[in-house]
């Protein structure tokens, strides 16, 4: 039965200057599927409550972890990114979502397109693959504004066999030592880095504008709409 459960922060990991991973202990928690999210609720002393959804970052069967990107004028993310620490109590509900999920051995290959913190549920899929030693080919194209906004950078770079990881920077100030891709994810970028559209599933996650643009670019390359799963977070 889906209900709010008491959760305790057990660990905080600074991912970037503006993003923090929180590991949560939730008694009675059922493990999630890669790509799912949780609803998280905070309650102020006067009873005021704020609820937000966060994608699960960790692999299934691993302790529940979320990565929170601080939104400066936000109400919840500054608390989670800056204030919450081991021992902080929150409430969580989930895991939820059965559409934007990847299961091993279900598809010939997987394409992952991430915009900004849209990498989080896709990282869960990649971690799942690595943890199981699943051979499904994975192609990840991850768009970030600047190098200091890249989440899980070293981990993503440590590719295993069958993984292709491309990071593209979209900001104005590209550092001179950057040797990766630059520019927004468009059909040309995708054509350079993705396999021909045959078989497999594509997962696209990011801000709405990113998802719309990426899905349109995939269509240009001939990726069928029924093979694309999207998740927009506004």
């Amino acid at each position: 039965m889906l209900r709010w459960r008491q959760a305790t922060v057990t660990q905080r990991i600074a991912e970037t200057d503006s993003a923090t991973t929180l590991v949560l202990d939730v008694p009675g928690w059922t493990t999630h599927r890669a790509g799912q999210h949780v609803d998280l609720r905070l309650t102020a002393p006067d009873g005021y409550q704020a609820t937000r959804s966060y994608s699960v970052a960790s692999a299934p069967a691993r302790p529940l972890a979320i990565t929170v990107q601080r939104v400066d004028d936000g109400e919840v993310s500054p608390f989670l990114a800056d204030v919450a620490r081991p021992g902080t109590a929150v409430e969580v509900r989930g895991p939820v979502g059965g559409w934007f999920v990847w299961e091993p051995n279900t598809t010939d290959r997987v394409v992952l397109l991430a915009g900004g913190s849209g990498i989080v549920p896709l990282a869960s899929m990649l971690r799942h693959r690595r943890r199981l030693g699943d051979p499904t080919p994975f192609h990840l194209v991850y768009s970030a504004r600047t190098p200091d906004r890249i989440l899980y950078r070293d981990e993503l770079a440590a590719t295993t066999e069958g993984e292709h990881v491309v990071i593209t920077l979209t900001g104005d100030d590209i550092p001179p030592d950057w040797d990766g891709e630059t520019g927004r994810v468009d059909a040309q970028t995708l054509r350079r880095h993705l396999p021909a559209p045959s078989g497999g599933l594509t997962y696209v996650c990011g801000p709405t504008a990113f998802v719309e643009a990426a899905a349109a670019s995939l269509a240009v390359l001939g990726y069928g709409p029924t093979t694309i799963r999207t998740e927009r977070f506004g």
Partner: peptide
């Protein structure tokens, strides 16, 4: 419902021009 220590939402302003909550 359990209170999250340190979370104050955005409230706590006692201005009399503010309606409750």
């Amino acid at each position: 419902m359990s209170v999250t220590a340190g979370f104050g939402g955005r409230r706590g302003d006692d201005d009399e021009r503010l309606p409750p909550g």
